[in-house]
Amino acid sequence: MGNKFFNSRLFYVLASVFFAIILFFNANATSIRNETGNNSAGEVYTATINNVPIELKYDTTNYFVSGYTSTATVHLSGYNRLSITNEENVDTRKFYLSMDLSKYKVGKVDVPVRIESLPSAVTATISPKTMNVTIEKKASEEFEVTPKVDPTQLPTGFTIATQSVNDQTVKVTAGKESITQIAAIVAALPSDVTLTDNYAGTVTLHAVDSTGKILPAQISPATTHLKVLVNKLTKKVPIELKTTGTLDKSLSEMKTKLSADTVTISGEESSLDAITKIPANISVTGVTKETKVKVPLSASGVTLDPKEIEVTLIPVKK
């Protein structure tokens, strides 16, 4: 009886159904492993994204907000590596950060930083989670622009001749209370510049209080062109001409005539003190008739006026 069952058509049908079910579940398991990046061990993928911009939601027409940083750090984690990679890339990123200030009143408040539109396969934490924000009624006013040079940016012995800016006045927008603390709008010489020569360039404008502390404000325009002319330390030194090369056999000597015997050098006091003359070399090789030659002048750590002289070579026959 038992052998008849195993040889029956019903047995083969049941066996076929059994193996089909096994193959189905095996295929689904393979598909799931592929979809999760072959993450068979349940590995968690992580990423840290710095400087993610924060969108502020508030009535920009009537209020001014300060005291916050415009970016935050986001730590991502998830089992799907592709989802993490997409959120890392700013071009494929779906999430964004926001702070909703619309329900708060004027004053200092702690506001949570929220993450929006984060894919369900990804979890995230934000640093910082909250920010202390100052909310004020908005106010606008015209201010004069003041050029500024820190004394430490002038070498010893140098003085400022003139300083000027292209924009004499600018429009400043800030909080109603904060704007009363503004003592000046400064166009400061960049901190990495030392005035060994005149300066001209575009600088960022800042609102400062009476102590020089930078205050939060929107300035229009935000930059201006700053020009600073300096009085340099100068001194005159002689030019020492030296002839090089081979004198032609038909000549007894080579006379020289310089367009200038001295040069004015300018620079820091220590550099000027180290220089007592400016060397100038000129070759007489192949010169058999009167010749005028431009000779460049140079010296370390200073500027020269003129930067070149004209030397006349005058051959003297035997």
Results as ranks from 00 to 15, higher is better:
159 T>V: 06
162 T>Y: 05
292 K>D: 13
51 N>D: 15
237 V>E: 08
164 S>P: 00
156 T>F: 04
286 G>Q: 03
249 K>F: 09
37 G>A: 12
103 K>H: 10
23 L>Q: 05
245 G>C: 10
230 V>M: 06
197 D>H: 09
84 I>E: 04
207 A>M: 04
120 S>M: 07
144 E>D: 14
313 L>M: 14
71 T>H: 14
294 K>L: 12
316 V>T: 13
63 Y>R: 15
126 I>G: 12
243 T>A: 07
123 T>V: 13
179 I>A: 07
217 A>H: 05
235 K>S: 11
139 A>E: 10
48 T>G: 03
296 P>T: 01
184 A>D: 06
312 T>E: 13
161 A>N: 15
44 V>P: 00
96 Y>T: 07
289 K>W: 00
162 T>R: 10
90 V>D: 11
254 M>L: 06
177 E>V: 00
67 G>M: 09
127 S>C: 01
116 E>G: 04
33 R>W: 00
194 T>W: 00
282 I>N: 02
113 V>P: 02
140 S>V: 08
205 L>Q: 04
119 P>S: 13
241 L>I: 08
186 V>N: 01
116 E>V: 11
265 I>W: 02
145 V>S: 03
212 G>W: 01
5 F>E: 01
136 E>T: 06
225 H>K: 14
276 T>P: 01
136 E>G: 05
199 Y>W: 09
212 G>E: 04
28 N>G: 11
74 V>C: 12
104 Y>W: 10
288 T>G: 09
11 F>L: 03
198 N>E: 04
295 V>A: 10
163 Q>P: 02
174 A>T: 11
40 S>I: 13
137 K>L: 13
250 S>W: 01
77 S>F: 03
22 I>Y: 09
57 K>T: 02
313 L>E: 07
213 K>H: 10
303 T>S: 15
62 N>G: 11
187 A>S: 05
210 S>M: 07
129 K>Y: 05
82 L>G: 06
83 S>M: 12
